[in-house]
């Protein structure tokens, strides 16, 4: 199996960052009408959220460079915006990283919303990039859905770590959905073509897949029991779970080219 660690780190971290940004923006908007003091306190927390988002995104982008055989030429990857989702993905996350930093330094609602929208656009771009025609199992909305749920699960658990908000419901909904999607999708593939079936088999046979699902489920159960109190354990559990399943999402999908001459 081709582990594609740079892509795993890049996508998980940027999605984490987008999740943080989404909930930070939500906090920023929902803070309207509270007392100034409260707002200020929360704003300080949010600043930390934004800073974390910035670091995660920056680190993720850094990791993505190691996916390149020639990392020093990474900037050239922005060179085909008119057709390449990969170029767009790079540009959007570059923008997002800058916006996260700006928000961390001096937040404004307008910029927060902009950063959140930018993050969402990034998820869309990622969803398009990692749904190649050559991999029929994921040449669809599945990657985008998984990426979005990942962002929500990571963002909601991390967003409540400082105790200012309770995003337990959002966390439970997103983490449960993520588990459901990851379970249902390979089941659907088993009724697909040879290459899809082979992908399903790879997922089902992988300990990382099941361990990842287990950790995510555990996070869900912990959240059910302890709510926002157990924000940090939930975050760590779901982060581990997502990382493990992500290795499979990238490495465990069969390419049509390995089956040329055979039923497809």
């Amino acid at each position: 199996m081709n582990y594609e660690f740079p892509l795993v780190i890049f996508t998980v971290l940027t999605q984490f960052a987008v999740g943080l940004a989404l909930f930070a923006a939500f906090k920023s908007l929902s803070c309207a009408g509270s007392t100034a003091k409260e707002c200020e306190d929360i704003s300080a927390w949010r600043s930390k959220d934004w800073f974390a988002a910035f670091l995660l995104a920056a680190f993720g982008l850094g990791a993505s460079m190691f996916h390149l055989a020639q990392p020093l030429r990474a900037m050239e990857a922005l060179g085909n915006l008119s057709v390449s989702w990969l170029s767009r993905e790079g540009l959007i996350f570059g923008l997002f990283t800058v916006l996260a930093l700006v928000n961390a330094l001096r937040e404004s609602r307008c910029l927060a919303v902009l950063a959140a929208l930018c993050g969402l656009a990034g998820i869309v771009a990622q969803g398009m990039t990692y749904a190649p025609a050559a991999m029929p199992a994921v040449s669809n909305g599945v990657p985008m859905l998984i990426f979005m749920l990942t962002a929500l699960a990571l963002g909601s658990s991390a967003g409540q770590v400082n105790g200012s908000h309770d995003f337990s419901t959002a966390f439970r909904v997103s983490s449960a959905s993520l588990v459901a999607v990851l379970l249902i999708v390979p089941c659907l593939w088993t009724s697909g073509g040879t290459v899809m079936q082979a992908s399903a088999a790879l997922w089902m046979q992988s300990w990382m897949f099941w361990a990842g699902l287990g950790l995510t489920t555990l996070a869900f159960i912990v959240s059910l029991r302890a709510g926002a109190e157990a924000a940090m354990p939930c975050l760590l559990l779901v982060l581990g779970g997502v990382a493990l399943t992500r290795i499979i999402v990238f490495g465990g999908v069969v390419h049509t080219a390995v089956n040329l001459g055979m039923p497809y």
Partner: peptide
């Protein structure tokens, strides 16, 4: 000469046409 070796084309082509040259990094 333009290629930076991201291998996204290798992932994307259903027919396995582009191949990655590890030595030349493209």
């Amino acid at each position: 000469d333009k290629c930076i070796g991201c291998t996204n084309c290798v992932r994307s082509c259903p027919y396995g046409a582009p191949r990655f040259n590890k030595e030349e990094k493209h």
